[in-house]
Lab assay of single mutants.
Amino acid sequence: CHSECLGNCSQPDDPTKCVACRNFYLDGRCVETCPPPYYHFQDWRCVNFSFCQDLHHKCKNSRRQGCHQYVIHNNKCIPECPSGYTMNSSNLLCTPCLGPCPKVCHLLEGEKTIDSVTSAQELRGCTVINGSLIINIRGGNNLAAELEANLGLIEEISGYLKIRRSYALVSLSFFRKLRLIRGETLEIGNYSFYALDNQNLRQLWDWSKHNLTITQGKLFFHYNPKLCLSEIHKMEEVSGTKGRQERNDIALKTNGDQASCENELLKFSYIRTSFDKILLRWEPYWPPDFRDLLGFMLFYKEAPYQNVTEFDGQDACGSNSWTVVDIDPPLRSNDPKSQNHPGWLMRGLKPWTQYAIFVKTLVTFSDERRTYGAKSDIIYVQTDATNPSVPLDPISVSNSSSQIILKWKPPSDPNGNITHYLVFWERQAEDSELFELDYCLKGLKLPSRTWSPPFESEDSQKHNQSEYEDSAGECCSCPKTDSQILKELEESSFRKTFEDYLHNVVFVPRKT
């Protein structure tokens, strides 16, 4: 048989008469490798580009789960590009990614509803959504962080984005990388972005840091009482949809009607710091009717980097990364020049730590249904340095008659930039024990000054392991946590139920 035959053949030295091919099969003959313009397919066939392209389009058009959109890589027609490569849609070739590779997620039936953290986790790592997304989240724990972890990498949506009755959302900033909504599939009414009845939605994105392009379709905003109209108009300008909307697409009466839409800028007039305090004062603000001013709200939190936005980490279910302080308005003076500047002394802060701070007014709604208010920009203030805590785990070892090696770990709280350490030492008198000992005694162990690591005695271990207080009263049991108490109650309830079950099964009433 021919060298490319495997198993047997019907005619000697003829690659077209093989029972099976050793390498690849091409047009009725066995070959060692697939010549151009053919590609290896499933490690035994040679196919042309049209064959591989037909497989790709067949799966793409069917949208069946589990099928493969075949691509070409290293002269092979394979189910998908290997790690580190992405497909070129024009020629199906796998090309190296520039940075992290995109991950295209194809949605069944063309859309997916995100109504819980669990459903959001199914899209973790996706960068391109081939379909439409509907966000409908009523509640949950730590929602802002969970949504950002699972949806934060999405850069492109081919269909539309719909935010509907998501009472738990305060902001859409968890879509931190969303840059493009194509609108290839539109919501009824030709809408590519749809926001309806979101009672706590206050911000779409921080438009000073976020760009969003909507290729096709219109915007729809109705019944978002805490979303200011200025935020919607800003989205029109940034996304390129200005002029597409009709009169009733953006409701003037049901958007922002319960919001404090600040239209003035508060400026800080005085800032002073110490290692654990920050004193702030800002310019006074009074609405047209000074009785509408209820006070100020001061927001602050630790910020290692200057990239904080107002609604980071917030949701309507209680999660809030900001510390909020309510401040009463100052006494009002008739003389504008003698107006008191409101302020606040922030206490209990960490030394040498940068804080993000902003302040906003708290006002009631005027009778004319106009909203007044003022808010400052987010500023960054760093507390002063102070003395560091003591170095940890000092170790001293003498390696000769004239040297001592000293080692330690950095302090747990540096409280500033540590530039150097101060080492103090003092000579001590020799131990009298060394002169009084009889060095001729056998088995004498000389006193040693070398360091030995501390260890816990058996008594201390027994005390720590004991669940009861000892007789001397030195140790006591740790208080039980809520989960331990709940577990004990469940076990007790189970024992009672099981005992009742045994009584009912074992003891049967005697027939009379």
Rank of each mutant, 00 (worst) to 15 (best):
A195T: 05
N190L: 08
G131N: 01
I134R: 09
V397Y: 14
N307G: 02
Y372V: 12
W205H: 05
R176L: 03
N200F: 07
R138V: 11
M235P: 00
Q245Y: 05
D289P: 02
E283L: 06
P351T: 12
L331A: 14
A149V: 14
N334G: 12
Q306K: 11
Q121Y: 01
S119K: 02
E156P: 00
S274H: 02
L349M: 05
G256M: 05
V381T: 04
A374P: 15
S269V: 11
D315K: 15
K301Y: 03
G373S: 04
N136R: 06
I154L: 09
T254C: 04
L406V: 14
D367H: 11
F193E: 00
H233F: 08
Q199P: 07
Y380S: 02
W344I: 03
I395P: 01
L279Y: 14
L252N: 12
P351V: 07
Y300G: 00
R291F: 06
F220S: 09
A316Y: 07
P342R: 03
H341F: 10
R179H: 15
F174T: 03
P288R: 11
F220V: 04
C105E: 00
I405R: 06
L392R: 01
T386Q: 05
K234R: 12
D384H: 13
K407M: 13
T254Y: 12
P304E: 09
P329R: 13
E231L: 09
T383V: 04
P284K: 10
P288T: 08
L349Q: 01
N340Q: 14
K350Q: 14
L349V: 06
T309R: 03
R179C: 13
Y305H: 09
R291G: 05
I188Y: 14
Q339I: 12
N211E: 08
L108Q: 05
R179N: 05
L204D: 00
S158W: 11
V381H: 02
T254V: 04
F174S: 05
I278N: 00
R347D: 14
L265C: 06
E310F: 03
W352K: 15
E302A: 15
E146M: 12
S338I: 10
V359M: 03
F275L: 11
C126I: 02
K112Y: 06
Q245N: 12
P351D: 02
S116D: 15
G152D: 00
E237N: 13
C126Y: 03
C105R: 01
R179M: 11
C261H: 02
K409D: 08
K242N: 10
E368Y: 11
I129M: 03
I214A: 06
I114S: 01
S333P: 05
Y167I: 14
Q382K: 10
I114A: 02
H222I: 02
V324K: 01
P329L: 06
T371N: 09
W282E: 00
I271K: 14
K360C: 07
F311I: 09
D206E: 12
I214R: 05
P304G: 03
N190C: 02
G140S: 14
K409T: 06
T371I: 15
Y223G: 10
V324T: 10
L178E: 00
G131L: 00
F299I: 07
L178S: 00
Q403C: 08
E231T: 14
G313M: 13
I163M: 11
G373R: 03
P284E: 14
W322A: 07
K360V: 08
S158L: 15
G373M: 03
E236A: 11
L331G: 15
P284L: 15
G183L: 01
A251L: 08
E264A: 03
C228S: 03
C317P: 10
L293G: 05
L107K: 03
L298Q: 00
S269W: 09
A316E: 15
W207T: 12
K350G: 03
G159A: 02
L133Q: 00
S208I: 04
Q382V: 06
A259V: 13
S208V: 08
C228P: 03
G373N: 04
G373T: 08
S321K: 15
L169F: 14
N224A: 01
T361L: 04
